[in-house]
Amino acid sequence: MGLFNINCHEGKMLCDKNQYKETSLWEKIKLNFYLIICSECRAYTANNNKLTKAIKNPKVDSVSQDEKNALKERLARELGQ
């Protein structure tokens, strides 16, 4: 296992680089072999992938300006202003 012998710090660094498509083929191979044996880095990679997907495809519902104004008025009334 000498060729693929990396630690968690390097594994997470490679995961981050891979997320932004900055890894070389050799780094990808090392990372994939390391993810087989390190559950902490597998979890880190899974969370990175979820974060990337959430940022690329945000499912955010916003409130209309009328609804915002109504909420502000209601809050002002509740606070006694």
Score class of each variant (00 low, 15 high):
Glu67Thr: 10
Glu40Leu: 07
Tyr34His: 10
Asn5Glu: 11
Leu75Lys: 13
Asn48Asp: 05
Glu27Lys: 12
Arg74Trp: 11
Trp26Val: 15
Gln19Lys: 07
Lys12Tyr: 00
Asn18Met: 09
Glu22Asp: 01
Gly11Ser: 04
Glu67Val: 09
Asn49His: 10
Leu31Glu: 04
Lys12Pro: 00
Gly11Leu: 04
Asn47Arg: 11
Asp16Leu: 08
Asn69Tyr: 01
Met1Arg: 06
Gly2Val: 07
Ala76Arg: 14
Asn57Leu: 12
Asn49Ile: 14
Leu51His: 03
Leu25Lys: 12
Cys41Trp: 03
Leu71Gln: 07
Leu51Val: 04
Cys8Gln: 13
Lys17Leu: 15
Trp26Tyr: 11
Cys8Leu: 07
Ile55Asp: 01
Lys12Cys: 06
Asn49Tyr: 09
Asn18Ala: 13
Ala70Ser: 13
Pro58Leu: 13
Ile6Met: 06
Met1His: 07
Phe4Glu: 09
Thr45Glu: 08
Leu71Met: 12
His9Ala: 10
Tyr20Pro: 02
Asp61Val: 14
Arg77Ile: 14
Val63Cys: 00
Asn47Ser: 07
Pro58Phe: 10
Glu73Gly: 07
Lys59His: 12
Phe33His: 15
Cys41Phe: 02
Ile55Leu: 13
Ile6Tyr: 02
Glu40Ser: 10
Asn47Trp: 03
Asp16Cys: 04
Lys50Phe: 03
Thr23Trp: 00
Asn7Ile: 08
Val63Arg: 01
Leu25Ala: 08
Glu10Trp: 03
Lys17Met: 15
Thr23Cys: 14
Ser39Pro: 02
Asn69Ile: 09
Glu10Pro: 01
Glu78Gly: 02
Lys56Met: 13
Glu27Leu: 12
Arg42His: 04
Ala54Ser: 10
Lys12Gly: 00
Ala43Pro: 00
Glu73His: 08
Lys17Gln: 14
Phe33Pro: 05
Lys28Glu: 15
Lys21Ala: 10
Glu27Tyr: 10
Lys68Ala: 02
Asn18His: 10
His9Val: 14
Val60Asp: 03
Phe4Leu: 15
Gly2Lys: 11
Glu10Lys: 14
Ala46Pro: 00
Leu25Met: 10
Leu35Glu: 07
Ser24Asn: 07
Thr45Tyr: 05
Asn5Tyr: 03
Lys53Pro: 02
Ile55Ala: 08
Lys68Thr: 06
Phe4His: 11
Ala43Asn: 13
Cys38Pro: 01
Glu40Val: 09
Leu75Ser: 11
Arg42Tyr: 04
Asn57Glu: 14
Leu3Val: 07
Lys56Pro: 03
